[in-house]
């Protein structure tokens, strides 16, 4: 790919659109999460700001913008500010290669899955930096948990994606999207049900969402890695959490649920519809299950998901060789 002005302009435009998408997503999802939490617990949820509280998150973010960032004593100033910034920036890069529809993608490359998986590991590092720089035992324990959890859950997640990549012989998200048909029985969820189940469980571990939200575990760690953060530092970590939710939902949509293909005409609306469905499922699960213990969390991963993922990968490779 030769660098010329047109490519640079295209990258800049798509990055701007991605930032708009990410911010709009977290504004809407925070409201939807609180509303759904309310409904599941049979109370109204946010109600006062705007009709049915739809402006609640906008008011909240204005409040966060005006708040002072309090530095804890003896903290590492540089790393303390670097942590939240590092947690949100790789997210924008990962969205660059997501095909919202076959032609609507920021950067077309044959190794798009590799790029996403490489930058997904960055999230653990950002959390570790934030937790370490806070000079607080709760933050450090939360950060250590986050690292061991994201590293553990990345492996079965990669195995689940690799099985699909083996099946289609490509690491290109656009090609995987295009290889699936319009109807649900032509999607990868039918040919790779075990991989989809592994992905569905790893999704929660990778994004640090309940029931696997041990890095922030309010009951024992007050706030986990973002205990000492206030104002926009906290808001950026929060934004990163909702953005990683959106990212795994997009990946699940493209890999298993047919991406932009769908009955009645393929298009960007199908991608967003299925992604929204997965996001709602993540929220639904959060308000259903209690948090697991840390040894249980790692046992699920190393004793069940990893062997199952390897088995699934081996089976896929054998079947693809035979066929």
């Amino acid at each position: 790919m030769d660098i010329n002005l047109l490519v640079v302009i295209k990258l800049l435009v798509s990055l701007t659109l991605i930032i708009v998408l990410v911010v709009a997503n977290s504004v809407i999802m925070v409201w939807l999460e609180r509303k759904m939490a309310g409904f599941i617990q049979r109370r109204p949820g946010p109600y006062e700001v705007g009709p049915h509280g739809i402006f609640q998150t906008i008011v909240d973010s204005v409040k966060l913008l005006t708040k002072q960032i309090i530095l804890p004593g003896n903290c590492d100033r540089l790393l303390f500010f670097l942590g939240p910034i590092l947690s949100i920036f790789p997210m924008f890069l990962m969205f660059l290669v997501i095909p919202f529809s076959p032609w609507l993608t920021g950067l077309k490359t044959e190794l798009s899955l590799l790029l996403i998986l490489a930058f997904a590991g960055f999230e653990g590092l950002a959390v570790l930096i934030g937790g370490w720089a806070s000079n607080n035992k709760f933050s450090l324990i939360g950060a250590a948990r986050a690292v061991s959890q994201t590293v553990a859950y990345e492996i079965p997640l990669i195995l689940a994606f690799l099985a699909v990549a083996f099946q289609h012989g490509t690491l290109d998200l656009v090609a995987i999207n295009a290889a699936q048909g319009a109807w649900p029985w032509q999607w990868n969820i039918v040919t790779q049900p075990l991989a989809f189940l592994i992905f569905l469980i790893c999704m929660f571990g990778e994004t640090n969402r309940a029931p696997f939200d041990l890095p922030e575990g309010e009951s024992e760690l007050t706030g986990g890695y973002h205990t000492e953060y206030s104002g926009m530092g906290f808001a950026l970590y929060f934004l990163a959490e909702y953005t990683s939710m959106l990212l795994v939902s997009f990946l699940g949509t493209i890999f298993f649920l047919g991406g932009s293909e769908g009955p009645g005409g393929a298009g960007v609306w199908w991608t967003f519809l299925k992604t929204g469905g997965l996001m709602i499922f993540i929220i639904w699960v959060r308000w259903t299950y209690p948090r697991v213990r840390f040894d249980q969390l790692l046992n699920i991963n190393w004793k069940w998901l990893l062997p199952l993922g390897l088995l699934n990968l081996w089976l896929t490779a054998a079947i693809m060789k035979v066929l």
Binding site: F39, V285, W287
Partner: peptide
Amino acid sequence: VGLWVTGRYGLG
């Protein structure tokens, strides 16, 4: 089963 219960409550 848990998802079924919270789903019913959530639809309200």
